[in-house]
Amino acid sequence: MGTPQDEVDRIVAAWHRERPDLPTLPLSVFSRITRLARHLDRARRAAFAQHHLEVWEFDVLTALRRAGEPYQLTPGVLMNQTMVSSGTMTNRIDRLVVHGLVVRTAHPADRRVVQVRLTKEGMATVDAAMSDLLRIEADALKTLPPTEQTHLADLLRHLLVQFESPGA
Rank of each mutant, 00 (worst) to 15 (best):
V55C: 05
L27Y: 09
A109N: 04
R17M: 00
Q5N: 02
D59I: 07
E69N: 08
R42E: 14
T74W: 13
P23H: 08
S86A: 07
A106K: 13
V103Q: 10
P20T: 06
D21C: 01
R17L: 03
R17V: 02
T3G: 05
P26W: 07
S86W: 00
T90N: 14
T119S: 13
E69V: 11
N80Q: 14
V116N: 08
P20F: 09
W15C: 15
D9N: 13
T62R: 09
H39L: 08
E69A: 12
A106S: 15
P26C: 10
V113T: 13
A49W: 02
A46Q: 12
N80S: 13
H99Q: 13
G100S: 10
P70D: 07
P75H: 04
L53G: 06
A47T: 12
R112L: 10
Q72G: 04
L96P: 05
W56T: 03
V77I: 15
D59P: 07
R44G: 02
R117G: 12
R111T: 06
N80F: 04
R32H: 04
N91P: 01
A106L: 02
I93T: 09
A47H: 00
G87K: 03
D9L: 09
L27F: 06
W15V: 15
R42W: 09
R95E: 08
F48R: 09
L36T: 07
P23Q: 06
N91S: 14
T74Y: 13
R117P: 06
L36M: 10
R65T: 00
V60R: 03
G87T: 02
M89A: 08
I93Q: 06
Q5A: 05
P20Q: 07
D21V: 08
L25T: 12
R95H: 11
T74L: 10
H16S: 04
D41F: 05
A47C: 15
P75W: 10
E69Q: 04
L64K: 05
R38Q: 10
H99M: 14
L40T: 02
T34A: 12
R17E: 03
R117Q: 15
D41Q: 09
L64T: 03
L101S: 01
L22H: 06
L96D: 00
P108L: 00
P70Y: 12
L78N: 10
T34F: 03
V8L: 09
R111K: 06
A109Y: 04
P4A: 12
M79Q: 15
L27E: 05
V98Q: 07
L36G: 02
M83E: 14
P23R: 08
R111V: 00
M89V: 08
A47L: 08
V114R: 15
A67Q: 15
Y71C: 01
Y71G: 10
G87F: 00
D94P: 00
G2R: 07
I93E: 00
A37I: 03
F58A: 12
R19I: 03
G68Y: 10
Q81F: 01
R38L: 11
D9Q: 04
E54L: 14
R65F: 01
A14N: 03
T90A: 13
R32G: 05
T62K: 01
A14L: 14
V55I: 11
M83I: 14
E7C: 07
P108E: 09
G68N: 09
W15Q: 11
H16G: 01
V8W: 05
R38H: 11
V103G: 03
Q72S: 14
F30Q: 06
